[in-house]
């Protein structure tokens, strides 16, 4: 592992790029810079003169970087690691994670492999975090829907909170549906009958 390599992370998500930077630093890489803005991307990348550029594949600025490789006659020309067809598993992993690396100036691929592997696992960890966040958010909104329907049942059918909830739960079991779906149909029906 070559810890003196200069690495630039081009990512529109500041949280994700912070996670990656942290990972690289933990692994011992000390020359890590982050670029989030599209404006002056080229100037900023040039200023760092990196050996490795990490970019997320959802970033339209990939095309801007490609121009740099076109016009740079002075600067060493970066090669997209992503397109090296010799390592299919690594390509698949990098595409699935949504990250790509450019290697500048003919560095041996092996020297960069550990960097890319690290980025892939951090990208994956980031999407897992996002998924969990989504789940929490949707659980919260499910909770609200169920509470609202419960309140309606209590009022209309003059039930206690517990009775209202168990009525919804038994209906959901009987109809093989989720309790939140039953709650939603109660709300919809109530709104239609208003």
């Amino acid at each position: 592992m070559d810890l003196t390599l200069k690495i630039v992370i081009v990512d529109e998500s500041p949280v994700r790029s912070a996670i990656i930077e942290e990972g690289l630093r933990e692994a011992g890489y000390s020359h890590v810079a982050r670029v989030a803005e599209t404006a002056n991307l080229l100037a900023r990348v040039y200023a760092v003169d990196p050996d490795v550029i990490i970019i997320d594949l959802e970033n339209p600025s990939r095309d801007v970087l490609e121009q740099m490789f076109q016009v740079s006659r002075v600067v060493k020309r970066p090669i997209a690691m992503f397109v090296d067809q010799s390592d299919a598993a690594s390509i698949q992993a990098s595409v699935d994670a949504g990250v790509s690396a450019y290697i500048v100036g003919g560095l041996a691929k092996e020297r960069v492999k550990s960097i890319l592997d690290l980025c892939i696992s951090r990208f994956n960890a980031f999407s897992r975090l996002q998924d969990e966040l989504e789940q929490v958010k949707s659980a919260l909104s499910d909770r609200k829907i169920i509470d609202r329907a419960k309140g309606m049942l209590m009022k209309v059918k003059n039930l206690s909170e517990e009775e209202a909830y168990s009525l919804m739960r038994s209906t959901a079991m009987r109809e093989k549906k989720k309790i939140v779906d039953i709650a939603q149909s109660i709300i919809t029906a109530a709104e239609m009958l208003k």
């Binding site: 959802e58 990939r62 095309d63 397109v83 067809q85 595409v95």
Partner: peptide, 11 residues
């Protein structure tokens, strides 16, 4: 989102 992606994924 980018021509680079389209080209690489085709390639």
């Amino acid at each position: 989102v980018s021509w680079s992606n389209v080209r690489d994924k085709l390639n």
